[in-house]
Design a protein around this nucleic acid. Structure first.
Length: 610
DNA sequence: GTAGGGTTAG
C-alpha cells in the first residue's frame, strides 16, 4: 500500500540522514494528497529534524492542523539535533500556551537535553521538578537525560542521586554517570562506576577518557586510552580520538601528538572535520605552527572552529598580521565568526599593539555579528589598551563595562602599569586589588613584584605573610624539554641533574658573552630584599635557562629547541633567551603559561609584549 | 516521536 510505502521510506530517510530524499518525499506526498494522511505528517516532521533541516521541520509543524505530542516531541528533537537549545525551550512554551498540550515522557527527555545543552541549572531544576510532579515521573529514559544534565552543569552529586533512582539501568544511564564523574575530575568515582557497569563499549570508554581530558587529567586519560587499545576495543567512530588529540595539545607534547596523528591516519579518520580541528590546535599548542598550517591547508571543508583554531594559534605565535589576514579570508568564505574568534582576534591585536584595529573589531563584533561581549572580550580589549599605554582609557573601560571586574581583569591592568613604569598607579590599583582578597597565587606574585619594584619592602613582606596565612603557595616554576623520546624537567634553583657541571659551565660561558654584548641582569623582579649578587645568582638558576642549556648540549645541532614552561617566562630570562638565540644561532621556542615565544637572531616573536 | 561519548578562548 502506498501509505505504508511512504511511511517506511520516511523512516529510512531519518535513519540514513538524507535531506534531499526528505524533500523529494515531501513533494511526492503533496502531489498525491497524502501529506495530511494518518501518521505521515509526523513521520515527515521527524525525518526533516533528523536530516538536519530544522527550518523545514518548523514550517511543516506550523502548517499542521492537528498537532499531538508526537509532533511536539519531533520538533523538539529537530531543534536539539541542530544544537539550538534556546529554540527548543522557547517553542515548547509556545506549544503549551497555543495547543494546551502537556509534556509526556518523550517531551520531558527532550526538554532536559535542551537544558543540558544550555548548561542552565535553573531551568534544568524547573523541568526536573515538573517531571517529578507529572505522571511520567518513573520514566527511566528521562532520568538518564537528567543524569546527563546534572553532569554538564558540574553537579555530579545530583547526577548520582538521579542515577540511583533509575530502576532499570541501561548502557546509556551508566555512560552518563561515568561522564558525570570524569568531567568533574572525580577519577576514582569515575573508575568505580566504569568498572561496575555491566558492559564496556566504545561509548563508555569515550565518556571516561574525554571526561578526564576535560577535567585536565590528561596523563590519566592517556593511560586509559592505552588500556582501551589493549582491550581491543574497535574504534568504529573517531570521537575518542578527538579527545586524545586534545590531550596532546594540553600536554604540549609534540612527539606524542605526532604519534597520535599517525594513529588517526592509520584508522582512516584524518579527513574528519572534528579530528582535523583538534589536530590544528595540537600542532599549534605544541609550538609547531607550521604543522598546524599544514593541517589547515589540507582540509577540504573548514568550519568556524577550524578557522578560529588557526587564527588563535597564529596569534599566539606572534604572527598577528597573518591572523588578521586569515580572518579576512574567513569572512570572504562566508564562515561566520563566533565569540571565540573575536577573543583570538583582539588578543592578536593586543600582542602587536594594533589599538585601532582591536577597537574596530570589538565594535564590529557587536554591530555586524550581533555578539554580546562577555567579560572575556572586555578583558581582551582592556589588555590591548593597557599594554599599548592607553592606561586612562583602560581605567575608564573598567568603570563603564557592564561587568564587575574580576581578579584576572585587574591583574591584566596591573601588569600593564608595571610594564609602562606607572608605579604610582600600579600601587594604587594593587592596594584595591588586595582588598578583593585574591585567590590566585600568581596575583600575589604580581602584587609582590609591584611593591618590590617600588622598593616597598615592608609591603612585600606583608604579602608573603598573607600568602602563608592564607596557605597560598606559589606553584614551583619548571621547564620541560624533549630530546628524542626522553623528557627532562628542570626546576628553578641549583639542579641535581647528572649534567649539572656541564650545564653550569655552558651557562657561565654564555653569561660572559652576553655581558660583553651589553646584558645587564634585571633584578627588579626578584622578590626578596637581598644583595645584588645574590639576586643575580637566583636569576642564573631559572628553570628555562637550565632547560635551554641542556637542550644545547644534547640536541642535534641546528634543530629547533622547544621548551614548555608552566609559569610565565620572567623578564630577565626573556632578555637572556634573546641573547642566547643570537650567540648560538639557534631557534628557541618557549611555550609559557600565556603564549609562545620564538627566539631567533636576538629577537622574539612576541615583540616583547607578553 | 525520547536519553549517553568529540574540536576552538579563559
Amino acid at each position: 500500500m502506498l501509505v505504508t510505502r511512504y511511511f517506511r521510506l520516511l523512516q529510512q530517510c531519518a535513519r540514513r540522514n538524507t535531506p534531499n530524499v526528505a524533500k523529494t518525499l515531501h513533494a511526492q506526498l503533496l502531489k498525491n494528497g497524502l501529506h495530511r494522511y494518518g501518521p505521515l505528517p509526523n513521520t515527515l516532521l521527524d525525518a526533516y529534524g533528523k536530516c538536519g533541516l530544522p527550518g523545514d521541520a518548523f514550517s511543516l509543524f506550523e502548517e499542521m492542523p492537528h498537532r499531538d505530542q508526537v509532533s511536539w516531541a519531533s520538533i523538539l528533537t529537530a531543534y536539539n539535533q541542530a544544537n539550538l537549545p534556546r529554540r527548543t525551550l522557547s517553542i515548547s512554551r509556545a506549544i503549551l500556551a497555543d495547543d494546551g498540550l502537556w509534556p509526556d515522557h518523550f517531551v520531558y527527555a527532550s526538554l532536559v537535553k535542551a537544558c543540558a545543552g544550555l548548561g542552565s541549572i535553573r531551568l534544568g531544576r524547573q523541568v526536573h521538578a515538573s517531571f517529578l510532579l507529572s505522571s511520567f515521573c518513573e520514566d527511566d529514559v528521562t532520568k538518564s537525560s537528567l543524569v546527563d544534565m546534572y553532569a554538564k552543569c558540574g553537579l555530579p552529586g545530583d547526577a548520582r542521586a538521579v542515577f540511583d533512582s533509575i530502576l532499570a539501568k541501561n548502557a546509556v544511564s551508566w555512560t552518563a554517570m561515568v561522564s558525570a564523574y570524569a568531567r568533574s575530575g572525580l577519577k576514582s568515582d569515575a573508575m568505580a562506576i566504569f568498572e561496575s557497569a555491566p558492559a564496556r563499549s566504545l561509548f563508555s570508554w569515550t565518556a571516561l577518557i574525554s571526561g578526564l581530558v576535560q577535567s585536565g587529567n590528561n596523563v590519566d586519560a592517556f593511560h586509559l586510552f592505552i588500556d582501551m587499545r589493549r582491550d581491543g576495543v574497535d574504534i568504529i567512530d573517531p570521537l575518542v580520538l578527538s579527545s586524545i588529540v586534545g590531550a596532546c595539545a594540553n600536554l604540549a607534547m609534540l612527539e606524542l601528538g605526532k604519534q597520535i596523528h599517525g594513529l588517526v591516519i592509520l584508522l582512516g579518520y584524518e579527513s574528519c572535520l572534528f579530528i582535523s580541528n583538534a589536530l590544528i590546535d595540537t600542532y599549534a599548542k605544541c609550538s609547531d605552527i607550521l604543522g598546524a598550517k599544514d593541517i589547515f591547508n589540507g582540509m577540504n571543508r573548514r568550519d568556524v572552529v577550524s578557522w578560529t583554531s588557526i587564527i588563535v594559534g597564529t596569534a599566539q605565535h606572534g604572527q598577528a598580521e597573518e591572523a588578521l589576514e586569515l580572518f579576512d579570508k574567513m569572512v570572504s568564505t562566508r564562515v561566520k565568526p563566533n565569540e571565540v574568534t573575536f577573543v583570538g582576534l583582539i588578543y592578536a591585536c593586543s600582542h602587536v599593539g594594533l589599538v585601532d584595529r582591536g577597537r574596530g573589531l570589538f565594535n564590529s563584533m557587536i554591530k555586524d555579528y550581533g555578539i554580546t561581549p562577555s567579560l572575556q572580550h572586555y578583558t581582551c580589549l582592556l589588555d590591548l589598551l593597557s599594554r599599548s599605554g592607553h592606561l586612562d582609557e583602560a581605567e575608564n573601560l573598567i568603570n563603564q563595562m557592564p561587568f564587575q571586574p574580576d581578579e584576572p581583569t585587574w591583574a591584566a591592568f596591573l601588569s600593564a602599569c608595571k610594564q609602562h613604569g606607572k608605579i604610582e598607579m600600579a600601587v594604587r590599583i594593587a592596594d584595591g586589588l588586595l582588598s578583593l582578597k585574591p585567590e590566585d597565587p600568581s596575583t600575589y606574585i604580581l602584587l609582590s613584584n609591584i611593591y618590590a619594584r617600588a622598593a616597598m619592602w615592608d609591603k612585600v613582606a606583608n604579602i608573603r605573610k598573607l600568602m602563608t596565612l592564607m596557605d597560598v603557595r606559589k606553584e614551583p616554576g619548571y621547564s620541560c624539554i624533549d630530546i628524542g623520546k626522553e623528557k627532562q624537567v628542570f626546576y628553578a634553583g641549583e639542579t641535581i641533574h647528572p649534567m649539572k657541571d656541564e650545564i653550569f659551565c655552558l651557562l657561565s660561558e654564555l653569561d660572559a658573552e652576553m655581558r660583553r654584548r651589553g646584558y645587564v641582569p634585571d633584578t627588579s623582579l626578584v622578590l626578596h630584599d637581598m644583595e645584588q649578587q645574590e639576586k643575580e645568582k637566583q636569576l642564573f638558576w631559572h628553570s628555562e635557562r637550565l632547560a635551554v642549556a641542556y637542550g644545547l648540549l644534547k640536541s642535534v645541532p641546528g634543530t629547533v629547541i622547544r621548551i614548555v614552561k608552566n609559569l610565565r617566562v620572567c623578564g630577565d630570562c626573556h632578555t637572556v633567551l634573546k641573547f642566547i638565540s643570537a650567540i648560538v644561532k639557534r631557534e628557541i621556542v618557549v611555550r609559557d603559561a600565556n603564549r609562545y615565544h620564538h627566539f631567533k637572531g636576538g629577537t622574539c616573536s612576541c615583540n616583547d609584549f607578553w
